[in-house]
Nucleic acid binder design. Structure first.
Lengths: 250, 250
DNA sequence: CACCAGTCTGTGATTTCCCTGAGAAATACA
DNA sequence: TGTATTTCTCAGGGAAATCACAGACTGGTG
């Protein structure tokens, strides 16, 4: 079993690494090329090493020689049932955590036992932040070490707990909606870095979002109301460039 | 870097360990592959080391070299009678506790005699919480585990005794039905952590449950009525994410 | 100083999600 | 066997979240 550890990059981003210091390996399995491309790009950006497969057979083969630390597995594959793939994967890699991708309406159908072994799932269409966050959680928990602090993001006097979904500033608890939470998480995982509205839209909203681009402005406005209200502001606008978050004190 | 030794499981719960610090070993015996897979996944997630067998012969063989601390044994095996398997198991491992899996309509008298020796049983279809809880109890009582951890879960002023099935808040005794009890146990074993409805369903309801997902909402509602009624609430909803329990004061 | 692109935010429609009452079905128990 | 309890379905109500739209505002620029 892999024991992930964390290091902090010069930019202030924490990365998951394997015990020997090599990058975490993730296998992405989906028959839609656009999905594997999208995921590969996003996960590579996390500093992870990615391999992808388009069907069950390829997944097993790749898993055998690539020996990933985690697998992203679409339940709807052309050549075999998702559960079959899972079974064979488990035979190759008994302890590897799996993040399932399922259609929205398949959830009700019953994905019995999928999360029972500590695995997790997200529904299509997903947001990249969601996938990354879940994967990080799975990889973190799959290791022998469990440092609770790893699930807490801190910027200045603002903290965000990814396990309990709790957010607080200067000790005051703050209630956020799901979207607000993901937006803030994205900002806090990239402190002091300007994020464009396009980047935010691509990461926080699901990939099929077809709405107006100013939802980002709207949700930034919501966040400010809850986080910066009456305090030294932490969320800043860079006109024509985007937004960034940083500790309040100069 | 060396993987640090830990006494907490991936879930952050306290873990059962053998006197020498190695993980507890459990042998799972069932002829249905889906059952052994499901159990292996769930028990591995408890931090235990799992081996499985599909018939009596394989069970004896595996037991001989694996020397498990506990056995999960289906009474209905293709090659030999459950009692025969039990007898031979006992010859190999005289003191190992056994958790029997039986069909609902199986003769209860036979089982009743068997459990007199400190063993236990659950009926198919079972819930994973049930199996895990019983196994923990067996292992704890057998003395194979390092620590004699007590069987009482405490979150704030709420206590739940896994042995006596007694629940109380602020001293007041609370009567719960079986399902309510298991749901509360699952929540209390994961305090301050958001648990999705899918996770809860996978863990607390039996693996063949095909009903509506809103039973979870319903039972959360029941629990609230009994536990949070007129008090500071401990069970919280994270809209779009799940539920969590935490001490009332913050 | 006036303009404009870019940004902020109030209002309200729509959708999604959650809660819970009522009662049917299943189960346990006497 | 009859009764009590428990489990679960169904459906309505309601609250919260999401988002479109539009008008107000702001900072930079000519």
């Amino acid at each position: 079993m892999v024991c992930p550890m964390t290091t902090t990059s010069p930019q202030g981003r924490t990365e998951l690494l394997r015990p020997d210091g090599s990058p975490v390996r993730v296998l992405v399995v989906d028959d839609e090329l656009s999905i594997t491309e999208l995921l590969s790009m996003a996960l590579r950006y996390e500093g992870w090493q990615i391999r992808s497969a388009g069907d069950g057979t390829g997944a097993i083969q790749t898993a055998r020689e690539f020996r990933p630390d985690a697998v992203v597995l679409d339940m709807m594959l052309p050549d075999m049932d998702g559960l079959t793939v899972l079974g064979r994967l488990r035979r190759e890699l008994p302890d590897v955590p799996v993040l399932f991708l399922t259609a929205k309406d398949a959830v009700e159908d019953r994905i019995a036992g999928l999360t029972a072994g500590g695995d997790d799932y997200v529904t299509k269409p997903f947001s990249l932040e969601e996938v990354v966050a879940r994967l990080r959680g799975l990889i973190r928990r799959s290791g022998a070490a469990d440092r609770r602090s790893d699930s807490v993001l801190v910027v200045g006097d603002l903290t965000l707990d990814e396990d309990s979904h709790e957010v607080s500033r200067a000790g005051d608890n703050i209630h956020l909606t799901a979207t607000e939470f993901e937006l803030l998480r994205f900002l806090m995982r990239n402190p002091r870095r300007v994020l464009s509205k396009a980047q935010i839209l691509d990461r926080v909203w699901s990939y099929d979002f077809g709405g107006q681009a100013n939802v980002v402005e709207l949700y930034i406005s919501y966040l400010r109301r809850k986080i910066d209200a009456g305090r030294e502001p932490m969320i800043h606008t860079r006109r024509g460039a985007g937004y960034l978050i940083k500790p309040a004190v100069s």
